[in-house]
Nucleic acid binder design. Sequence first.
DNA 1: TTCGCTACCGGGAATTTTCCCGTTGGAAAT
DNA 2: ATTTCCAACGGGAAAATTCCCGGTAGCGAA
Lengths: 212, 212
Amino acid sequence: MIHIGLADDHQLFLKSLTLMLHSFGNYMVVLEALNGKELCEKIPLTQLKPDIILIDVNMPVMDGAAATKQIAALYPNIKLVALSMNNDDHTIINMLRAGCCAYLLKDTHPDELEKALHEIHTKGYYNADAANINFRRLLFAEQQQDGHRITEKELGFLKYACTDMTYKQIAHVMKLSERTIDGYRESLFGKLQVQSRVGLAMEALRRGLIKL
Amino acid sequence: MIHIGLADDHQLFLKSLTLMLHSFGNYMVVLEALNGKELCEKIPLTQLKPDIILIDVNMPVMDGAAATKQIAALYPNIKLVALSMNNDDHTIINMLRAGCCAYLLKDTHPDELEKALHEIHTKGYYNADAANINFRRLLFAEQQQDGHRITEKELGFLKYACTDMTYKQIAHVMKLSERTIDGYRESLFGKLQVQSRVGLAMEALRRGLIKL
DNA sequence: TTCGCTACCGGGAATTTTCCCGTTGGAAAT
DNA sequence: ATTTCCAACGGGAAAATTCCCGGTAGCGAA
């Protein structure tokens, strides 16, 4: 009997996935959480520790990447699996770097989920080639984006950049000079490979740096 | 026995929701589809017509609103229920106007889903007050936005506005004058209540007018 | 026909964004 | 102690955006 933990902010999906896992026969859901924080808090309270935890990427309060990092550090022998609906490179890299051993899409077939869980439990990893996730390409992409990590201040600016505000207003609320804002913009344009504020906002959304 | 139809682009959710509905005891899933188009094509082919169809809002190929409109016109006695994860006013209004008799969120509890389906089947409607969906407020909001409907051409422009392109480039690919583009922008600024292109792009995303 | 409406087009100017050119001060490296 | 690096700051100018002012052409209704 394999013990499973689940974290997803959609109750309906969470509960119905539990049913599905039980229907597989060999799995038992020992932990359910509606966000990353709840997941982290519940793990120490369960006596039947999960072997594998399926973690949704997009969750309120604490998202999948943050939860994955924390759990990977505290419980290294729990296998963490990212479960998401978006399959863009950046989020996949993000989750794998956070400590996931597999990345599953929500539109995979139940049979493949079962196969994936079995492989993860026996071999420790699973590579869904059907879901066009090419690890070699991803690793190359990670090489490329190395040194292009976004700083904390840039992220703070990015939030305001995805808004109706002008740079002058942004500079005012951030208590910085307009020139400094200029610097952040330039830097982000380079890192995200765009050349206008709209492109910046769109790419930030696409990479999950900004929500909504 | 109540016959149910399902449309959702995430296989895992689709299949596990089917399991959950069967576990309720009184429901049978007679139709599954991965997008709106597939749903519309499968309805005429099923001999056990569904009483209720749960339709996801965000789907590829043909989205929930389009599918709802088409089905509501062809099969007026099938109850259509929108099932989505985002609960912003615009999408809800959109689905209700398309012909849905209820709007359910994906993070509702299974018990509430069962209750909702029962009410929809017996009374013909369901209002989830727990999900802060206030119909009176929505109707008022619809009054407010009346005459603010986005035209086909404006939508075409909107796609390009959510891009790294300049207006000049957009005018060129749309084979229109820059002034005409100017007009579309002005009109959309007013309709979406924004005052910059970034705000426009963000609001378009928020209202589901543009994907990604 | 005349009126009103809508889609399309244009000039011009204020504002904002984008992109150059710099300086300074402080922290880290050598 | 000196260099090196980098975040923060600034001037100025080209480009893009925003927002006015208008016009013409088509088209259905009065």
